[in-house]
Design a protein around this nucleic acid. Sequence first.
DNA 1: TAACGTTCTTGATTTGAATCAAGTTGATTC
DNA 2: GAATCAACTTGATTCAAATCAAGAACGTTA
Lengths: 189, 189
Amino acid sequence: MKRIFYNIHKIFPLTEETFEALKNCARILHLQKNEFFLTEGEVCSSIGFIEKGSMRLFYNSPDREACNDFFFENSVVGSFASFLSEMPSIVNIVAIENSEVIAFSKKDINDLIEKHPSLKQLSDFIIQEHFIRTEKREEALLKFSPELRFKNLLEEHPKIFKRIPLQYVASYLNITPETLSRYRSRFLV
Amino acid sequence: MKRIFYNIHKIFPLTEETFEALKNCARILHLQKNEFFLTEGEVCSSIGFIEKGSMRLFYNSPDREACNDFFFENSVVGSFASFLSEMPSIVNIVAIENSEVIAFSKKDINDLIEKHPSLKQLSDFIIQEHFIRTEKREEALLKFSPELRFKNLLEEHPKIFKRIPLQYVASYLNITPETLSRYRSRFLV
DNA sequence: TAACGTTCTTGATTTGAATCAAGTTGATTC
DNA sequence: GAATCAACTTGATTCAAATCAAGAACGTTA
């Protein structure tokens, strides 16, 4: 069984019936490295759970890509803004490594929640976690200097540096790759 | 009748009964300039609609406040992250002008939606708009230089410069008041 | 293993915003 | 209307990160 189902069940125990219904709606996607889950300008039609791999969310910019977030196993990917409003997305989501994503379409999600109200809890939880994540991200961008953002990331998520190409980490920190490289030599020795 | 009810009714026509129920849960707050609607560390227990006045949301920082958003008439204020999770808020929301806010407690909101399912639409709409707003804000912070953020704000929301003390606008643009002052003399003349 | 392309590092220089430091303007109070 | 305080402006200087420019390390393919 896919780990995402195991994890959902662990947090929100579901009846056998609900669980089956959920599993039946799952669409399994295999994304190659650099393949897009969501492209700017298209409507985000489904929400995905990363079963394996990693992805990044970024905004297109004339000069450089602006990376806003990384996602690993058990993360939820998608643009809630586009998914809910059904307006074109302003963000891109792309696989960093070859990845496996379990995706649920909007229609299926709506039907599932309607027929299995216990899933409403899950959906609320996901939205709640997204708000929390967003606030923390905004806080980091507004309150901390580039150098401090680097140190905080290193402290809180050291594995990111092992797993993600540094150019993307630099973009996430909103600095150039050169600056990141200098921080690393300065603080990592 | 408060304008917020008028506007809700315009977007999502409600039955007389639902409308009455909603009005009965409204708590009217009068906030003096500089009075807090939500303080960092406290749980956000209600969501407010600004009937009159203006407010700002900011993150506390050792050196300076980091302003993330402004709210005017008909805006929704609160920390969804804290409101939904019932964890202490990491943001502050404070009145810029003397303001009138129509507030709804979490319990009332939950009860209202349960008894009047048509209000679920309204709640979903508010959450959706919040996601859209957040994505746009992140985009501006990540993609654009301080100078470009200034020009964009001037173009899209010129009234902000009339109504909001410039120190807060500077904080919102993530620049110092001195830099904002220089931009103004450079680009407004 | 040689050749290529990509990613990362290192150095020199430039630059845009922060900081530091006075002023000026404006609003409020006595 | 003077005095006070906060908000904003202006100027001089400093500083951190961007840019520009090579080069080194690494992975992949021939």
